[in-house]
Design a protein around this nucleic acid. Structure first.
Length: 641
RNA sequence: GCCGACGUAGCUCAGAGGUAGAGCAGCUGAUUCGUAAUCAGCAGGUCCGCGGUUCGAAUCCGCGCGUCGGCUCCA
């Protein structure tokens, strides 16, 4: 029998079976055979020793393909499991997949792994890898496989076989003494696994269920080349340097105080300036787009949260207290407030679309283990808005929102975005509020709007919240990391619960569509993202201190004071360093604080009524008349660049 | 919330049953200096909190709080 393989260049390769994938790769070229990691037949990944039995589009993966990395990492996970089995014979293995940048394996061990254990395991892996042991695959009957794993005490594997679809073939992979339930593919042998490192160990639940066993998850990273591993570790070191929690401390931006409670942020003067700039810009941009800014109280009576449904769903996650036998709730959302404002008078279709925006500070009791710097807190300020509109205004409004989101974030220097469209789980529509028509219409509106803006979008089946479909937009930062900021959510629930209405042209009372949205997400979170993106080197318009004036020595302080006043009166955020230090030390301090401009003033400058400019970006830039410098700075601030 | 690690001066960290240490920052004084750290002195601590073991606990044990890495969760 012959097999026809269509190669990426459309060439058709005819081969006689029986043959393996490796044979086919060898037929294309011997050099390729040596470099091949795996192959793809009609999009399906297979390893090299698999028998080829069907025709199809055939693609060879070498160590240059992204997908090969996944294969390598998955194989590294197996190698690690083997090493663990050697060192800890009682270990029971759960899942061990590849993940972004690496892999993990969930293991139930007699005792938790220590950092020393990781070192030992890593050494063992290196030792085992050098023996150049092959990965081999075989098929096995279900009952036989369950019996095999049960007999070995591998109850997680045995359990998982029972969870696999009836018609799925069961495969086992062997590497050395380790046998795993696994579909593959894997690298040919362990000699390819060279550049890896075990990173950390953490708890993880079996099958992600917090009611099930908690396992030890060992994370590792793996690469084809040592220099890729080094580059990855350097990237992690760079990310650590940019950690907003560290920079927040060093640059005196904010702090979280144990004595005040976790997840609650104190904004120091410099951080408060950052916030102020972000918020001012945000407000101005909303006014430009016909939003009305509103302010709602921080606490509402409990009944309101009964009406909204939050008290039923989230009672344990809300801060509540009683006063005069009356339950009050510290608001975890702004929506009910905006609805009350909407209902303050009878609304006409002529009033729509109506856009209420508020930088609304909300409080939610987040579980202690989830808190993380400014990224996950218990008190935060949503850049919230609610849009009330008619059905035929829907698409336009959503399109405006997406465009607004992009424009707003672009000002902060972000240029790349990814969108996710979350829709309901079509298998399980009962748990969602709203009719099929509403869901269809809303999803259509979101989709059309996304198309119009031309944003890349991924459909997320079953990821919608119970009350409506949503679009989430993620930005990509300077290190290529994605951060979710914008969320645009339909709400079929609150309008009904509060009976929100407007009078249409035909005199009928109707429910408006309600869209809930945040563009930056929360101010706290967004400032964390900004801090990490810029590594604390904020653009001039955001910089807490824009200019530092550094007199060379005491006799020039008065002149420095004059320059200070000129800049301050021009609206520039400026600091005068009057300390009794050498100018080198003053520069060092200003550089460490990442202040964009430093002005050195001494005798020369005093005589010429000038200043010497040093920028954080370029270093010494030479002298300049004061007025020229003021203009330059004001222009740069205005450009928000 | 769960698993693990950690918590010492404002910050970064050393110390490990027997009087609590360094650097930076702070204060005082000297110095008056030209593009990333001038010198000297002084001060600074419930060693996260509460219990326990011990003649004696920052150190060992228990509980609590907090931080970190994950898991789970995220209206």
């Amino acid at each position: 029998m012959s097999i026809e393989l269509t190669l990426p260049d459309e060439q058709v390769l005819k081969l006689e079976s029986p043959l393996t994938v490796a044979d086919a790769v060898g037929a294309i070229g011997e050099g390729l055979r040596r470099r091949a990691i795996a192959a793809r037949l009609d999009g399906k990944l297979m390893d090299l020793h698999t028998a080829l039995t069907e025709n199809g589009r055939f693609e060879v993966l070498t160590d240059r393909d992204e997908d090969s990395l996944a294969v390598l990492r998955h194989s590294t996970a197996h190698l690690m499991a083997w090493a663990v089995k050697e060192l800890f014979p009682g270990a029971r293995f759960a899942f061990g997949p590849d993940v972004e940048n690496g892999f993990y394996y969930d293991i139930l061990a007699d005792a938790p792994f220590t950092p020393d254990d990781l070192t030992t395991i890593e050494q063992k892996m290196k030792e085992l890898a050098r023996t150049k042991v092959p990965f081999t695959k075989r098929s096995m009957g279900r009952d036989e496989a369950v019996a095999l794993f049960s007999e070995q005490g591998q109850n997680f594997k045995a359990e998982h076989i029972g969870d696999l679809p009836e018609d799925e073939e069961i495969f086992l992979y062997n590497v050395g003494e380790f046998t795993d339930l696994c579909g593959g593919p894997h690298v040919q042998n362990t000699s390819i696994i060279k550049a890896f490192k075990l990173m950390s160990v953490a708890g993880a639940y079996w099958k992600g269920d917090e009611k099930r066993e908690q396992l030890q998850r060992i994370y590792g990273t793996s690469w084809f080349k040592a220099k890729d591993l080094t580059a990855h570790l350097e990237m992690l070191a760079e990310a650590e340097k940019r950690d907003h929690r560290k920079l927040g401390q060093k640059l005196e931006l904010f702090g979280i105080k144990e004595e005040a409670g976790s997840g609650l942020v104190f904004w120091y003067p410099k951080g408060a300036v950052l916030r102020e700039q972000v918020e001012n810009h945000w407000k101005a941009e909303h006014r430009k787009r016909d939003y009305q800014l509103v302010v709602s109280p921080h606490i509402f009576r409990g009944e309101l949260w009964q009406t909204s449904g939050h008290l039923d769903y989230y009672a344990d996650d809300m801060y509540t207290f009683e006063q005069d036998d009356q339950l009050y709730v510290v608001k975890p959302m702004n929506c009910p407030g905006h609805i009350l404002i909407f209902q303050s008078d009878l609304k006409s279709y002529r009033d729509l679309p109506l856009r209420y925006a508020e930088l609304g500070t909300v409080y939610r009791y987040e579980r202690s283990g989830t808190l993380h710097g400014l990224l996950r807190v218990r008190g935060f300020t949503q850049d919230d808005a609610h849009i009330f509109c008619t059905p035929d205004q829907l698409v336009d409004e959503v399109e405006k929102l997406i465009t607004f989101s992009k424009e707003l974030q672009e000002t902060f220097g972000f240029v790349e975005f990814k969108a996710e469209l979350s829709v309901r789980d079509s298998q399980n529509t009962d748990k969602y509020i709203g009719s099929d028509e509403e869901w269809a219409e809303a999803e259509q509106a979101l989709r059309v709007a996304l198309d119009r803006v031309g944003l890349e979008v991924e459909r997320m089946e079953g990821e919608a919240v119970f009350y409506g479909p949503k679009i989430d937009i993620k930005l990509k930062d300077a290190l290529g990391r994605l951060w979710q900021t914008t969320t645009i959510q339909f709400d079929f629930n609150l309008g009904r619960r509060f009976n929100v209405q407007y009078v249409d042209a035909d005199g009928q009372h109707k429910h408006p569509y309600i869209i809930h949205r945040a563009l930056l997400g929360s101010i706290e979170r967004f400032i964390a993202i900004l801090t990490e993106n810029f590594a604390g080197e904020f653009p001039l318009w955001l910089a807490p201190v824009q200019v530092a004036i550094l007199p060379v020595s005491a006799p020039y302080r008065d002149y420095g004071q004059k320059v200070y006043e000129t800049l301050r009166n021009a609206g520039i955020r400026v600091e005068l360093n009057e300390r009794d230090e050498k100018v080198g030390a003053k520069i060092r301090n200003a550089e460490l604080q990442k202040i964009p401009y430093m002005l050195v003033v001494g005798s020369r400058e005093m005589e010429e009524s000038s200043i010497s400019v040093r920028s954080h970006k370029n270093g010494d830039e030479g002298s300049s008349p004061i007025d020229d410098f003021v203009k330059r700075v004001l222009d740069e601030i205005a450009a928000k660049s």
